[in-house]
Design a protein around this nucleic acid. Structure first.
Length: 294
DNA sequence: GTACTTGTTGAACG
DNA sequence: TCGTTCAACAAGTA
């Protein structure tokens, strides 16, 4: 369930490890993983990694030959760096227990670098994908996807956010937060946490939000995402950072998958609601459906 | 065996 | 064209 904070965590940890490395070989064990012509991947052989970026939940690996590789981890994708064989340390830290067995049965791709180190792509559910394309075409692709703004981009003002919200005034807040064309990077975990932080019921229609409530929502998005990035993401099951370590955000979650547990603020049991084909978790006391009750 | 989990994608509908 | 909903994908866990 890598959402924005998890992908950002992978970007940061991996950045230190692989920027500057030269690609020696790429093994692809799952054909459908690559959603662009295979020749693009072949051209990466001999190129150096010049930098890592992120857009929404996508990791972008830039190469010296002017190409970029988009990696989408979807539900269970992992990118884990390993120094050359024989070394039991990664970035000065011991390799986390239980993560030594790489490649494993879920390893779908392996990047080998000229210094003997490797980067493993594992994906239990095989839903993730790679896309190789010229770096100059990235922006066009994101436009074509109608990808919304980055929540933490300083250029995203409250006013701009409010305008985007108003286009979906008949939709429920939760649905809008998950819509990547409105704002990019939120998934089910942080959408629930954001609503709790803002004190808003997930099924409220965005059109019913007062300016004050919209502002609270905007600030909650940024606050929750910043906190999650600082905690290096949520490891609910399979998430690992670029060095194979788990994240620390799980214990900070207030509502997600805490159904029946007492609200940390008012002790009311957290409720789970089926919303479309997704679940929404919230506190019925702290997140009232009708604004008049607040 | 059944329900449930999630991020995206593409089809279908009005 | 657009907003919206839903099945599909995938493979594990409870």
């Amino acid at each position: 369930m890598p959402e924005l904070p998890e992908v950002e965590t992978v970007r940061r940890t991996l950045s230190r490890a692989i920027v500057g490395k030269r690609v020696k070989a790429i093994e692809l064990h799952l054909a459908k993983l690559l959603r662009s012509p295979r020749s693009g991947l072949r051209r990466l052989i001999g190129a150096r990694i010049t930098g890592l970026a992120r857009r929404a939940k996508m990791l972008l690996i830039h190469f010296s030959n002017g190409t970029s590789l988009i990696v989408h981890l979807k539900m269970t994708g992992q990118l884990i760096y390993r120094p050359k064989r024989g070394s039991d340390k990664v970035g000065g830290h011991p390799i986390p227990h239980g993560e030594r067995d790489l490649p494993n049965r879920y390893t779908q791709a392996i990047f080998s670098f000229s210094d003997g180190s490797r980067l493993f792509y594992n994906d239990l559910r095989k839903l993730g994908y790679f896309k190789c394309l010229p770096t100059t075409e990235l922006e066009g692709l994101f436009n074509q996807m109608k990808l919304g703004p980055e929540p933490l981009d300083p250029k995203l003002t409250y006013k701009l956010f409010s305008t985007r919200l108003s286009r979906r005034f008949k939709s429920k807040i939760k649905d809008v937060l998950l819509d990547q064309t409105v704002i990019a990077g939120l998934g089910n975990i942080y959408a629930d946490e954001v609503n709790y932080q803002a004190g808003l019921h997930p099924t409220r229609l965005t059109g019913s939000l007062s300016p004050t409530e919209q502002k609270r929502l905007f600030q909650a998005i940024q606050r929750i995402l910043r906190l999650a990035i600082n905690k290096r993401g949520t490891t609910y099951r399979s998430f690992r950072d670029g060095l194979g370590r788990t994240g620390n955000m799980l214990s900070c979650l207030k509502v997600y998958r805490r159904t029946g547990h007492p609200c940390r603020r008012c002790q009311t049991p957290i409720v789970r609601l089926k919303l479309g084909s997704r679940s929404a978790h919230f506190c019925p006391t702290c997140q009232k459906l009708h604004p008049a009750n607040r």
